[in-house]
Amino acid sequence: MALPFPKIDPVAVEIGPLAVRWYGLAYFVGILLGWWYARRQTNNPRLWQGDRAPLTVADLDDFVLWITVGIIFGGRLGYALFYQPDHFLNEPLAFFRLWEGGMSFHGGLIGTIVAMMAFSWKRGLPLMSLFDVVSTAVPFGLFFGRIANFINGELFGRPTDVPWAMVFPGGGGVPRHPSQLYEAALEGILLFLILRLLTHHFRSLRYPGLTSGVFLIFYGAFRIFVEFFRQPDPQLGFIAAFLTMGMILSLPMILIGAGAVIYALRRGPRTPEVRV
C-alpha cells in the first residue's frame, strides 16, 4: 500500500522557448517572502533593545541582491564540492545549468554568510544583528525549496511501509518516505514558529547572535533527524556506518550555534549605536 505520487509538471509556466520551473519559482518566492518578513522584523521597534534596530529597511532592500547571489552561487558551489565533484570537474559547464537542479543548503549557507560579512563591512552594520534578522527569514526559502524538491520527485526518502509512503518516479518502484515534506514541515514551518516565539516573546533580537545561534542548532538537529529517513545520495551513499553527508555537514552547525547562544547570553542585551 502506498499513496500515488502527484504528477505535477516541473515547468510551472511555459511561454514559447521560455520555461519557468517550480524549482526556480520556489527560490524567487522564498527570497521575496524572506525579504518581506525581515523588513517587518527590522521595522518593529519593540523587538530591539532601546526600541531601535541597528539596521534599516533600506539596508535590507540593498542586501537582497547580495544574498540572492550568495544563495545561488554558494548553493551550486557547495553541491559541486560536497556531492558531485567528479561530475563538475569532467563537465565544468554543467555548473551553470541551474535548471537541472543540484543545490546544497550548506553551500548556500556559506555563500549567505560571506555575503553578510561583505555587506556588513561595506555598510558598517553589526554583523551578528544582520545574521539574526536573516536567520528569521530563512525558513521561508527552506519550506518552498523542499516543496519544489517534492514536485521534482527528487531527494526522496528510504523504502518504508508507513501508510503515507509514496512511489516516486525515480525511486525504483518501491514505497518511500516523502522526506522532502518532512523537511518542509520541520525546517520550514516548525523552525519558523520557534524563531517567531524567540523573537516576539523572548525578544531574542536584543541579544546579538542568539537568534542565529538557535537557528543553527535547530536546523542542524532537524536535518540530522530527517537524514535517517532520507535516501543517501547515490554517488556518495553512507560516508561511514550510518552517517550521511547531510549529517556530517549539519553537526558543526549545532556546535557553532551552541557557542553563539552561550556567547550572546553571557554578553547580554545590546543597545544599537546611533549611525550617522
Rank of each mutant, 00 (worst) to 15 (best):
N44R: 15
M253K: 03
I256N: 01
F238S: 09
T56R: 10
P163R: 10
L186E: 03
S104D: 04
P234T: 11
L130G: 01
A241C: 10
A260I: 09
Q235V: 13
E273D: 14
L251V: 10
P234Y: 05
Q180S: 08
P6H: 09
L193E: 09
G24D: 06
I15V: 12
L32M: 11
Y207K: 07
L127G: 06
V274A: 13
A240Y: 14
P175R: 01
G78Q: 00
R206T: 08
V134L: 14
I189T: 09
V134W: 06
A264Q: 04
F88R: 06
A165L: 08
V133A: 02
I15F: 09
H201L: 13
V162T: 05
S135Y: 04
R146L: 08
G74H: 04
R196V: 13
W164V: 00
F202P: 03
A19S: 15
Y219L: 09
I72D: 00
F168L: 12
V274N: 12
P178V: 10
A137F: 05
W48F: 01
P85Y: 07
L191G: 00
D62Q: 12
I31S: 05
R196L: 11
E227P: 01
Y182H: 07
S120L: 10
A264R: 01
Q231W: 02
L32C: 14
A184D: 05
S120H: 02
S129D: 12
F73P: 01
L89A: 14
F96I: 06
F222T: 02
F95A: 02
W99N: 13
R46M: 12
S179T: 11
A258S: 12
L255W: 10
Y79G: 00
L25W: 09
A26N: 08
Q231D: 15
L190M: 11
D86N: 15
G172L: 03
N152Q: 08
F95K: 03
N152M: 07
P234I: 11
F168K: 07
H177T: 12
A80L: 02
A241Y: 13
G108K: 00
Y182F: 15
I31H: 06
W22F: 13
P234H: 09
L142R: 06
G259W: 08
M253A: 12
G30L: 04
T244E: 00
G30R: 02
P169H: 07
V64A: 15
D59S: 04
T199H: 07
R46S: 15
S104Y: 00
R223V: 03
V64G: 03
F140C: 05
L47S: 02
A2Q: 07
R123S: 04
A118P: 06
G111Q: 01
A26K: 03
T271S: 13
P269C: 09
T56Y: 04
A94E: 15
M166N: 03
S104L: 06
D59Y: 02
D132Q: 07
E227V: 06
P234V: 13
G170Q: 12
G209D: 04
L193M: 13
V64H: 07
A137H: 02
P269M: 08
P126N: 15
E183H: 07
V214H: 01
F218E: 01
M103C: 12
N43C: 11
F5C: 05
K7H: 12
A185N: 05
D51N: 15
D59L: 05
S135P: 04
F96C: 04
T112I: 12
I239Y: 10
A12C: 12
F95S: 00
F96W: 12
I110N: 01
I31V: 13
F131Y: 14
R275F: 14
L249H: 02
V276I: 14
